[in-house]
Design a protein around this nucleic acid. Structure first.
Lengths: 317, 317
DNA sequence: CCAGTTTGTGAGTAATTGCCCATGAGCGAA
DNA sequence: TTCGCTCATGGGCAATTACTCACAAACTGG
C-alpha cells in the first residue's frame, strides 16, 4: 500500500492488523506478510489500534470473590445494581476496570429495544467509561445530562460526557447549557425557567437509569480544580460536614443533602428518584471512600460500580 | 490461593489473571508475584482464560465486520485469498471498492522482488481495478492475458486490460491476439498452434496468480453486448444450466465447466490450476450472485474480492 | 491399597513482541 | 529550488511470552 498519508487509511490498516492479531490470533509476522509490510510496521499498527481504543477487551466471567462482595454490598446498602471488578494493587489509576465495567453496563441498557431515558453526570471516571463505549445506533433512546457543561468562566469545557456519549451511540441527547454552580438561588431559578432547560429537567424526572460519578471534597477536588468553588469555601463546607458531591449536590457523612445555601446554587438537574430510577455511582479508590460510603448510606445512589478493595472497605465501615 | 483442585476456583484465578493481563495491562511476572504463583503458572492462567473464552476482544471499527465475513468466506469456500470491502448502499456502481481493493492486491503481488507471472482476465471490473494501479517499475515480472483482446469483428477493442496494466506497471506483457469465442473447436485448435499463442498458453500454466472478472449470463451480459454470442444462443445456454462465465469459460450452477460445444469454441487460455495458482475473482452486486456462488462452489476460483453485501448473500446461500 | 491416568508445576528454550535508532521520503517555508 | 522538519520505515536487540519436557500430586477404578 504505497503512499498513505491519510490518517483514515492508516486507521483502517490498524483495525485490520488489530483484528488479525487479537481476534484471529495471528502473529505479527504473519500479519506483516499478509499485509505486505514489515513486521515492525505491523507491530506499530497493532499498537496503534490499541492506542486508538479500536480494540476493547473485556472479561466475561463472574469472579467468585467479586460476586460475594457484590452480594454483601447489595444487602448491606439495599442496592439495585452492584458490579465489583478486581483490584489491581499495583495501579494508581482511578478508572481502570471501573471504566470498562461502566461501559458494559451502559451498553446493556442501550441495547434494549424499548426506548429509555438514560441520564449521565460528569467527571473523570464517567468520561473514561464513555470512552470505552463501542459505536452503536440507538435512535430509540434519549440521553440527558444531569449537570451543566458550562465552566465558571463561561467556556463549554468541563468533562464533555454527554457529547462524547451521543457521538458514540447516536441517540438524541439533551445537554444542560448551564454551569454546575451559579451565584445565587435566584439566578438558578431564573435559568431553570428557560423552556429549553425545563424540558431537560422534565426528562431528568423520567430517567430510567442514571450513571454518576462520586465527587470527593477537598481543596484538590474537581469542583475546586475546575474553578466552581474556591478553596476557602470548600474548607468552610467541609467544616460544616460536607463529605461528598454528586453532580454538584453536596451531602454530609450520612448522605443527606446539605441544608446550607450551597445546594440552592447548584444548577444541576435534581437526582432522579431512587424509588423509580436506578442511579448508579462509579467510583473506586481511597480518596472516594468517605464520599462513596456516605452516598450509599443516604441512598443518594442505589447502584454502584467499584472495585474489590473499595468494596471491602465499605463493607467493613 | 495456591492449592485449588476445584475447576471453578481455577477459572476464577484464570479470570483474575486474564483481567490483570488484558485490562490492567500488567506483565505476567507482575501478575505472578501479585497472586503469589510462579510466572509459568500465571502464563497458564492467562492462556486458560483465553482458551475458555473468558476474555472477549472486539474491534470497534467498521472494518471488523469485513474481516469477520472474510474469515467466514475463507472457511466456507476453502479460499486462499479473501478481501471484503465495505458496501456502499447508496451507490449503484459495480466496481467501487472492488477496484481499489483489487488494485491494492495486484500491487502487493507486483511489489515482490522475485519474478512472478501474473495473469489477468478481462471485463469492466478488472479494467476499473487496473485503472487504480499506481505507476510502477516491475521489469522482473511478466503479465499475461488469459483472454483474447480481439472483438468478433476483428477490431482490437474490448476491455483492454492487459495493455493498460502493462502501461502502468512497466512489465513484460503477453496479450492473446485472439477473439474470446471462435466459430469451431477446429479453428480454436488451429489458432492455438501458432507459436506466439503457444508461449502465452505456456505462461498461463506457470502463472503465480490470476485476477479474473466473473461474468454473469443473460441477454444483456458482456458476452452478448460485445457481440460474441447472440441472444438466442445465450438463452439456449442458460436453459442448459449455464450460470456464469470466467474468461469465456462457461460453467453451471455447481461451477462445473459445461460439456456442450460452447467451451470448445473458447479461445482463452485455460484457467490456471487452482492447486498451484491463486485465482482471484473480482465481483460484487446482485447480478453476479449466482455466477459468483457457482464459481466458488466449483472452485473455479480460490480467491475472491467482493463487498459486504455480496459476501453476506454468498454465506447465507 | 495400588497401578494407571489425569492434571498441575517448574525449568529451560524457542518464539514473539516492544523499543530505540539511523535513514530516507514527503511537505512547508524561505 | 533548497533547507529543515516531521514522520513512517526497517533493522537490531532486549524484554516478554509461549511451548516442551520431565516430574509430582491427585484422582480413578479395581
Amino acid at each position: 500500500m504505497a503512499r498513505r498519508t491519510e490518517t483514515a487509511g492508516r486507521l483502517d490498516d490498524a483495525a485490520r492488523a488489530g483484528w488479525l492479531y487479537y481476534v484471529a490470533g495471528r502473529t505479527q509476522d504473519e500479519i506483516a506478510s499478509a499485509m505486505g509490510i514489515s513486521r515492525q510496521s505491523a507491530q506499530r499498527l497493532v499498537s496503534l489500534a490499541v492506542a486508538e481504543r479500536l480494540i476493547k477487551v473485556r472479561l466475561d466471567h463472574p469472579i467468585a470473590e467479586c460476586l460475594e462482595l457484590g452480594e454483601a454490598m447489595r444487602s448491606k446498602f439495599g442496592l439495585t445494581h452492584v458490579d465489583i471488578v478486581p483490584s489491581d494493587p499495583g495501579s494508581s489509576s482511578t478508572t481502570i476496570g471501573i471504566a470498562e465495567a461502566g461501559a458494559a453496563e451502559i451498553e446493556r441498557w442501550l441495547k434494549r429495544p424499548d426506548p429509555i431515558v438514560l441520564a449521565v453526570g460528569t467527571g473523570r471516571t464517567l468520561k473514561a467509561a464513555i470512552d470505552q463505549l463501542p459505536a452503536m445506533e440507538c435512535p430509540q433512546h434519549r440521553i440527558m445530562s444531569l449537570t451543566g457543561n458550562i465552566g465558571p468562566d463561561g467556556s463549554a469545557a468541563y468533562y464533555n460526557v454527554i457529547f462524547s456519549m451521543a457521538d458514540a451511540v447516536k441517540a438524541r441527547h439533551y445537554p444542560m447549557p448551564l454551569p454546575v454552580l451559579v451565584s445565587s438561588s435566584e439566578e438558578r431559578d431564573l435559568l431553570h425557567r428557560q423552556s429549553l432547560v425545563q424540558s431537560t429537567l422534565k426528562l431528568g424526572r423520567e430517567a430510567d437509569v442514571a450513571f454518576v460519578g462520586i465527587g470527593e471534597l477537598g481543596v484538590d477536588a474537581p469542583l475546586c480544580l475546575d474553578g466552581f468553588l474556591d478553596p476557602a469555601e470548600m474548607t468552610r463546607l467541609m467544616e460544616e460536614g460536607a463529605t461528598g458531591e454528586i453532580c454538584g449536590w453536596m451531602y454530609d457523612g450520612e448522605g443527606r443533602l446539605l441544608d446550607g445555601s450551597i445546594n440552592e446554587r447548584v444548577a444541576s438537574v435534581p437526582l432522579p428518584s431512587r424509588e423509580s430510577t436506578t442511579v448508579i455511582g462509579l467510583a473506586k479508590g481511597k480518596r472516594k471512600y468517605a464520599a462513596l460510603l456516605a452516598a450509599l448510606r443516604g441512598r443518594m445512589i442505589n447502584g454502584v460500580i467499584t472495585d474489590e478493595a473499595t468494596a471491602r472497605h465499605l463493607l467493613s465501615a
